[in-house]
Design a protein around this nucleic acid. Structure first.
Length: 298
DNA sequence: CTCCAGGTCGTTG
DNA sequence: CAACGACATGGA
């Protein structure tokens, strides 16, 4: 099997992808788009996604899916990890539009944008407001352990999937607060209701243009511009959106604008500069800028 | 103890 | 429409 440079082979019960370029597992998982993973070694993780738990490891440009069927790889993980997309071209095109991205792209050249579940992203990013990433992970885990279906992973451990709407829609505000969601509890209830009763669904959102889709998402309480953009980018495959949070605001003002600028203006600026590649640009800048900002305050 | 975190809401000027 | 405090919770 051959695809876009890389090659897939089966060894024992493992799926191995050889010659995989523009991919660094730690960057893919830890760039802030994904919250359900545990690091168990150097470039080695357990991930919970797509109703499954999978053990994966990267060695140089070789990615190993342990105890995985070829069907699961083809039907699920290939798309989840965005394996077949040509990131070399994306990076080349981004640099053509803006040479200033060079440092960020070179430093974080193994980022991929995952294709994650819409509902999970919606609830997760509602939770994300005014919280740090480790807290978000903990809360998502709490909700999954209480209301998600149980599965057994490769090591024989119990693992809990993120709940489906049908399950979460039955959960009360008070029960949600016990998962430590705090003031976001009514937001989650509203999101579940609107998805469950068909007012805001993945199909409807996919049928709309980007501005209509964002607007519809923002009819949900607790979903503003930033959360809506994250859901569009990470849960609906809309790679042109450029979510602006406190980090991106700092990074963009520092790199380009040189003055205090409202988020909406930054978003427009980014769209004019990066066009349909906005989401990728945002991820390279976000991960690079956050790492830098943590150390020396930009 | 105080301050702040991948924001958003509701209320004022 | 810009500005501003409130909002739960936990870690620095």
């Amino acid at each position: 099997m051959k695809n876009n440079g890389h090659e897939i082979r089966i060894e024992n019960e493992n799926i191995i992808i050889d010659n995989l370029n523009d991919f660094i597992l730690s960057q893919v998982l830890e760039c802030g788009q994904c919250f359900r993973f545990d690091k168990i070694g150097e470039e080695e993780y357990i991930i919970i996604a797509k109703d499954r738990s999978v053990h994966i490891k990267q060695e140089n440009n070789c990615l190993i899916f342990f105890q995985t069927s070829i069907e699961d790889y083809k039907n699920i993980w290939n798309r989840y990890f965005d394996i077949d997309r040509d990131y070399e071209k994306i990076k080349r095109d981004l640099l053509k539009r803006d040479p200033l991205l060079k440092t960020a792209i070179q430093s974080k050249n193994g980022i991929r944008i995952l294709n994650q579940d819409f509902f999970e992203m919606l609830i997760t990013f509602i939770i994300s407001q005014n919280k740090q990433i480790p807290h978000i992970k903990q809360i998502v885990k709490n909700i999954s352990e209480r209301y998600g279906d149980e599965i057994i992973d490769g090591q024989g451990n119990k693992v809990y999937m993120f709940p489906k709407v049908d399950a979460l829609v039955k959960v009360s505000e008070d029960e949600l607060r016990e998962c430590k969601v705090g003031f976001r509890a009514p937001y989650i209830v509203d999101a579940c209701n609107r998805v469950y009763n068909g007012r805001v669904t993945e199909d409807i959102l996919q049928s709309l243009d980007i501005d209509q889709a964002r607007e519809l998402l923002m009819t949900i309480k607790g979903v503003g511009e930033k959360v809506a953009n994250c859901v569009l980018l990470f849960g609906l495959g809309r790679r042109e959106v450029f979510p602006v949070d406190v980090w991106m605001k700092r990074i963009m003002e520092d790199l380009y604008l040189k003055e205090e600028t409202p988020n909406k203006k930054i978003e427009e600026y980014a769209y004019n500069k990066y066009g349909e590649l906005g989401g990728y640009a945002q991820q390279y800048l976000f991960m690079y800028g956050r790492e830098k900002g943590k150390k020396q305050d930009l």
